[in-house]
């Protein structure tokens, strides 16, 4: 069971590439590797915390008010993470600024609360939140690294290309996010179809 949850979160039910949830932050913050990593980790922290609390409290929450109750719990976690980031990672918080509060309405978090945490025990929910979060982080990181590499010629802000390299600016602009996400989707489809074909 646990092995399955981890595999689902990281790959087979990956938040971006399979569930296609949370595409708004995915497209917006992946202009560089460090932004993508920061956003991914913040979402992971929220997801793990909210999944745990919701699975502990789900049986006491009447069905008809579950969505507002989940949203309050999620918003509480997001605000705490927001304040802690501002206190300890000020410069990262400045870059991610407006995207952190938006984690509240990230469909992944409410989606996991509704589809998994409210029906499973706390341990499974914790692992599910963690693995979905890490799967999300890795996906963001790949997209962010590619866009930064091509669009700015750097990796984590360090020059990585010959100085004669002329950055392809579109990669770090909004259209680039759609283009490169499309390429990644195609890549994953290709890998999946190969795996299927071999069986």
């Amino acid at each position: 069971m646990i092995k399955n949850i981890i595999k689902n979160g990281l790959y087979s039910n990956n938040a971006i590439f399979k569930q296609m949830l949370g595409l708004c932050p995915t497209l917006a913050v992946t202009t560089s590797a460090v932004n993508a990593l920061g956003m991914g980790l913040a979402t992971t922290a929220v997801l793990t915390g909210s999944n745990l609390v919701i699975s502990l409290t789900a049986k006491y929450i009447p069905k008809n008010i579950r969505i507002p109750a989940y949203i309050v719990i999620i918003a509480c976690f997001v605000t705490i993470i927001d304040q802690m980031m501002k206190a300890n990672f000020y410069s990262l918080h400045k870059v991610l600024g407006i995207f952190i509060p938006l984690i509240v309405v990230n469909c992944i978090v409410l989606g996991r609360a509704e589809a998994f945490a409210s029906k499973n025990n706390p341990l499974y929910s914790l692992i599910d939140g963690l693995s979905i979060g890490i799967g999300f982080t890795i996906s963001l990181f790949i997209l962010g690294s590619i866009r930064e590499f091509i669009g700015a010629g750097t990796f984590f802000g360090m020059p990585f290309m010959l100085s004669s390299y002329n950055p392809l600016l579109i990669a770090v602009m909004p259209p680039g996010a759609f283009l490169f996400l499309g390429f990644l989707f195609a890549g994953k489809q290709f890998i999946d179809s190969r795996i299927k074909g071999e069986k």
Binding site: T57, Y60, I61, P62, I65, P68, A69, V72, I73
Partner: peptide
């Protein structure tokens, strides 16, 4: 009342 009570406690 149960709904109101629960959501109050949570908030």
């Amino acid at each position: 009342f149960k709904s109101v009570f629960t959501i109050t406690v949570i908030t």
